[in-house]
Structure formats: C-alpha cells, structure tokens
Design a protein around this nucleic acid. Structure first.
Length: 182
DNA sequence: TGCTGGATTATC
DNA sequence: ATAATCCAGCAA
C-alpha cells in the first residue's frame, strides 16, 4: 500500500527511522525495481552544515524547500546520483537520503548497498528529480514489518560539517547484509 | 568566466 | 590510498 503525502511531512528524524523496512518502488518505461530500505540519513533544516540547503535556496536545492513527499536527486562526484525523500513543511529544507536497499529478487544482496549504487541499479537519474511520491513512477509502500534493531551513527562523508558531522543521523537495520560500507 | 570540491565507488 | 568525472556555487 502506497504511503500517503502526510507521512512525509512529519519530523525528519521520525521519517528517517520509520522508512527502514519499507519498500522503495521504481517504475520506468520497461522495468520495475523494488527494494527494502535498510539505511537512511537525515538532513535537517537551514542550519545543518552537512546539508546542501545550509547555503540557502539555490537552483539545485529548491526541492528540499518544497513540502514533504517529493524526490530530490542530485549528481555527486560527477558520476553518481543520490536519491533523497523530501520531508516536513514547505519552506523548511529537510530530506532523508536513501543510502541502501535490499533487493529481494537478486542473488547479490549488495547491488544497492550505497546511495550511488542504489541509483545505478534502479536507473534513477536527474530525470527523476522532484517526482511526486504519491504518483506511479517512484513511491514507497509498506514492507515486511521487520523487528530488527535500528542502529544510530554519525552521517558518512560529511566531515567538512564540523559539529554537525557528529550528529547520529544515520540509521540502519542492525542485521541487514545490504548496509553500505560493510 | 574560471575555479574548487563534493551526502561515492571501485580498484590500486 | 586514490583516480574517475561533472557541475553547482561562489568569487571576480
């Protein structure tokens, strides 16, 4: 069952944790890809120095300032796309980076074990920026209700953010083999 | 108009 | 430990 708009407009930390165990679905013209979300990171508000939005609203970060319930896709290091789920109310920049999913119908459990790998496997590019998550192309639905404990750790790759890099805003399912950087 | 460096990954 | 490989953001 597809998750509704209001869900994404809740506090970002709540959404980041609650998304674990849910199923990400992507429909392109010729294929459907699915995966259980096993790792996320929260980027919250205008003061979070690890967030792209900390320098204000720009052309790139505009989706983060929209109301929760759309995608924010950007290119990093000139070669990898990253998928975010925009959260909270319009005007308040926040999003959840989807860092890893477990693809059920693949022999390799690690084909999508990282934000860049995930987009490569799903076929997600900048064409899929700012998509409405209540539409039919990209959305999230209830998954298997797992009872795996949630681990909280500092975010990855944001050492430039000073004290903000220390916040434990990365979340993953403790026993998942598909978590990044294992 | 030019320069800098990054919410990564694979390989050395 | 480091190359690969663009382009957003900022300085000028």
């Amino acid at each position: 069952m597809k998750i509704r708009k209001e869900y994404y407009q809740q506090p970002t930390l709540d959404v980041a944790k609650d998304l674990l165990g849910k199923r990400l679905v992507f429909n392109s013209d010729n294929h459907v890809k699915r995966g259980i979300i096993v790792e996320t990171e929260a980027y919250i508000g205008p003061d979070d120095k690890a967030s792209h939005a900390s320098r204000g609203k720009t052309n790139r970060t505009a989706p983060m300032f929209e109301a929760g319930g759309i995608s924010y896709v950007y290119l990093i290091y000139g070669m990898h796309y990253c998928l975010n789920i925009v959260t909270e109310a319009a005007g308040y920049p926040a999003a959840v980076l989807i860092r890893a999913v477990k693809v059920e119908d693949e022999s390799d459990p690690r084909v999508a074990s990282g934000p860049g790998k995930l987009c490569r496997y799903f076929g997600i590019t900048k064409e899929h920026n700012q998509l409405d998550l209540t539409g039919d192309i990209l959305y999230i639905e209830e998954g298997n209700r797992q009872r795996s404990p949630i681990v909280e750790r500092p975010r990855i790759g944001v050492d430039y953010a000073g004290e903000w890099a220390l916040k434990p805003w990365r979340f993953y399912l403790a026993d998942s083999p598909a978590v990044s950087r294992k």
